[in-house]
Design a protein around this nucleic acid. Structure first.
Lengths: 159, 159
DNA sequence: AGCCTATAAAGAATATTATTCTGTTAATAT
DNA sequence: ATATTAACAGAATAATATTCTTTATAGGCT
């Protein structure tokens, strides 16, 4: 077992399963579903937060409502030394950049970016990316349509 | 303006800004920060949900706590007809698949997958991907380290 | 066995919130 | 001018969150 550090039981899984789907579920509702007192649930939630099992509570907003309908993935080749993540940090600091992954094989990063449109993407690359000197080259892939976009994890079954 | 359908004002932005960061913030706290009555905030939130500006409230769980530490991106070439998204839907139905994007240029999909380890990835591909007949080929990229992973949108300023 | 400690949870009491309802105001249209 | 509508405040009450105390259970130790 690898999660021995975290030491979660079936009750924790049940709580996580409910909260992962709906971060605004009330303590009382969780208690009812799990069949425990609200105070006990609260203790567990606080412990889960402390242990950093629960990382954050996020509201997912419709990108179209904020005029950010263009999603792109950009491969970035960088001149970082081995183990040195300067480029990645610089990329992560850009608000339009939602994800930065250090990927195997290409000494490069895979970056996920959201902009209003292609003009916005061009601007972003000219204004922000161009200021990171360690970037050697980029290759951009445009998303035509997103079929699924979640961060939901598979939570072990209650059996 | 493209978000004319949604018709959001600065108060909405302020609410969204607070809720995007912390989905479990109380109505009362939002009201205090925005300087309005809780009842008015509640009305707005309900309207934002109805208009599908707010899509969902999610709890972000530490993947390590659930033994899902391997993140991979897989390019999938498919034999779908134009405009036909059967492959994408089949991929989206797999729980370990967090994202499915139809991408320009390659008549293929970019898929984000989370598994326990490389063995889990192999199993997933053998058990689940192999059952989708329209998949022609795949190319897998392993993530060594994730520097940033958010879905936070840039919300227009309150000026 | 007997004792100690730690942990988990129930239950009760109180502080906070959520939610509903009513009334007011302001903007817009008729 | 007068409806009409939308947005909000404020008050009342229903529901929750949160804290504290008590009880139960399991493990380790002498």
């Amino acid at each position: 077992m690898n999660n021995s550090e975290y030491n979660l039981d079936q009750t924790d899984y049940a709580i996580l399963r409910l909260m992962q789907e709906n971060a605004r579920i009330s303590n009382a509702d969780i208690a009812r579903e799990v069949g425990m007192a609200p105070s006990a649930i609260l203790e567990r939630i606080k412990k889960l937060e402390q242990k950093e099992v629960i990382l954050q509570y996020r509201t997912k907003i419709n990108p179209a409502a904020l005029d950010q309908t263009l999603l792109s993935f950009i491969f970035i080749r960088a001149a970082d030394g081995i183990g040195c993540a300067t480029t990645g940090q610089a990329l992560a600091a850009i608000p339009e950049v939602q994800e930065v992954h250090d990927i195997a094989g290409d000494d490069g990063y895979l970056v996920k970016v959201r902009t209003a449109d292609s003009a916005g993407l061009v601007t972003l690359m000219r204004e922000s990316f161009a200021k990171i000197p360690s970037i050697i080259s980029t290759r951009t892939t445009i998303v035509l349509e997103t079929v699924k976009e979640e961060q939901q994890l598979v939570i072990p079954d209650s059996n």
